Computed example of a mutant assay.
Amino acid sequence: MIGSINLLYLCFFSKMGILLPYLAAYYRSVGIPETMLGYLFAIFAIVNSLAPIAWGAIGDRLRSVKLNLAINFGGAFISLFTLFLTDNFYWILLSVAASSFFMSGVQPILDATAISIEKKRVIHTER
C-alpha cells in the first residue's frame, strides 16, 4: 500500500513539475495575449483554493477514497487533455478551471491516506 501511495505522489507532483513551467509558453503559442495570461493563472489559484471544500463534501457523500481519487484523476486528465485541443481563450479558461477543480482534491486525499498508513505502521511496529 505504501508503494502505491508513493507512486501516486510521484505522478501527481511530476505532472505539476512537467506541466506548470511551460503553460505560459503554451498559452502564448496559441495566441493568448500576455494580458490575458493573468486571468488563466488567477482562475487556477482561485478554484484551487475553493474546490477542496467541495471535494470534502463530495468525499463525505461518496465514502470511498478509491472512487474519489478515480473521479479526481479522471476529471483532471480529461480537462487537461481538452486544454490542448483548442486555442479559444474561453474554452481554455473553462479547461483550466475544471482541471484546477479536479486536481485540488487529490493532494488532501493522498496526505490523509499516507498519514493513516503511517499511523498503522507505527502502531504495528510498536507492539
Rank of each mutant, 00 (worst) to 15 (best):
A98T: 07
V30R: 06
W55P: 07
E118I: 15
P21Q: 04
Y9I: 09
N88I: 11
G59Q: 13
I109P: 01
I43G: 04
S95V: 01
A114V: 10
L7M: 12
W91G: 07
K66M: 15
P108H: 14
V30L: 02
I18S: 06
I46R: 02
I46K: 03
V122M: 08
F84K: 03
I71V: 08
W91T: 08
Y27S: 00
F77L: 13
I2S: 12
F77G: 06
F81K: 08
V96N: 10
I18K: 00
R28M: 10
K66G: 14
G75C: 01
I32H: 01
T35L: 00
S100M: 07
M36S: 09
N68H: 02
L50H: 09
G38S: 03
P21M: 06
A42E: 01
R61F: 04
F81V: 09
F81W: 08
S29A: 03
L23D: 00
R61P: 14
I46P: 02
L40E: 12
F84Q: 05
F41G: 07
F12N: 08
I109H: 06
L62G: 14
A114N: 12
L10N: 02
R63G: 13
K120D: 05
E126K: 14
I117L: 10
N68M: 13
F81D: 08
A51R: 04
L7K: 07
D111E: 14
A45M: 07
S29R: 04
W91D: 00
L69D: 03
K15V: 09
P52W: 10
P33T: 05
P21N: 05
G105M: 04
N48C: 11
A45F: 00
F84P: 04
T113Q: 11
N68K: 08
I5Y: 09
G56V: 05
I115P: 09
A112H: 06
E34V: 09
A24D: 08
I92D: 03
L83H: 03
L94Q: 04
F101S: 08
S4Y: 12
G75K: 10
A98F: 13
E126A: 14
G59D: 13
R121S: 11
N48Y: 15
M1H: 15
L19H: 07
G75N: 01
V122F: 02
T113K: 12
G38L: 01
F12T: 05
N6C: 14
K15Y: 08
I109G: 01
Y26N: 03
I18T: 11
S99Q: 06
F84L: 03
N72T: 00
S49D: 05
E118L: 13
M1R: 14
N68A: 14
L69T: 05
S79A: 13
S14L: 13
G105E: 04
E118R: 10
A25R: 06
I2W: 11
S49V: 05
F12P: 05
L62N: 01
I71M: 07
F101C: 07
L20F: 15
F13P: 09
E126V: 13
V106K: 02
A51S: 05
Y27D: 01
L23N: 07
I2C: 10
S99C: 09
K66A: 15
W91K: 02
I18G: 00
A76M: 13
P52F: 01
F84H: 08
E118D: 13
L10A: 12
L110Y: 09
M1I: 12
L85K: 07
I2M: 15
I43T: 02
S116L: 15
Y90E: 04
F81A: 12
A54G: 03
